[in-house]
Amino acid sequence: MSAVMNIKLTVNGVVYEKTVEPRLLLVDFLRQDLHLTGTHAGCEHGVCGACTIIVDGDSVRSCLMFAVQADGCKIETVESLARLGSVDSLNPLQESFRSHHGLQCGFCTPGMLMTSTDLLKKYPLATDEEIREGLSGNLCRCTGYEHIVQAVRTAVGQREESEK
């Protein structure tokens, strides 16, 4: 496994050029090479959704992609959501998760936020069933989902307010 490849990609608006092994998982690349530890690896086999990020506008499991497959891609991780990544400037979705107590241990939260960001961009989310269906690829073991659904519901309302 000595072969390496050069990749160039944009993560949270920053362009990176790196040399990586072809077998390096994208989640490990983000966490170890870029030190963006907000993205979490929960199962490493594509079920739990904790590692969800956005690649070229679509939510993706970063444990099911190699870093080399992201060559030339535009990636957003949880660190991109708050203004300047600051804990003092949460975006409306993050605020809604906080107000509704939509997180407990916080480990699935980055994946939940990135999936929700993608859902809010693409789908009407008119009913709670639709929200639950949209979140069904992300496991949470703490919240029982109730408060997460409420948080996304509020974010849907805010999205509609801002569209008026």
Binding site: R31, T77, A82, G85, D88, Q94, H101, G106, P110
Partner: peptide, 21 residues
């Protein structure tokens, strides 16, 4: 009171500190 959690901002922004971080 339903105070907002003090640990949330760091966990929501990817700035938590789990062991593997």
């Amino acid at each position: 009171t339903a105070a907002k959690r003090l640990e949330d901002p760091r966990l929501l922004t990817g700035h938590g500190s789990y062991v593997d971080d």
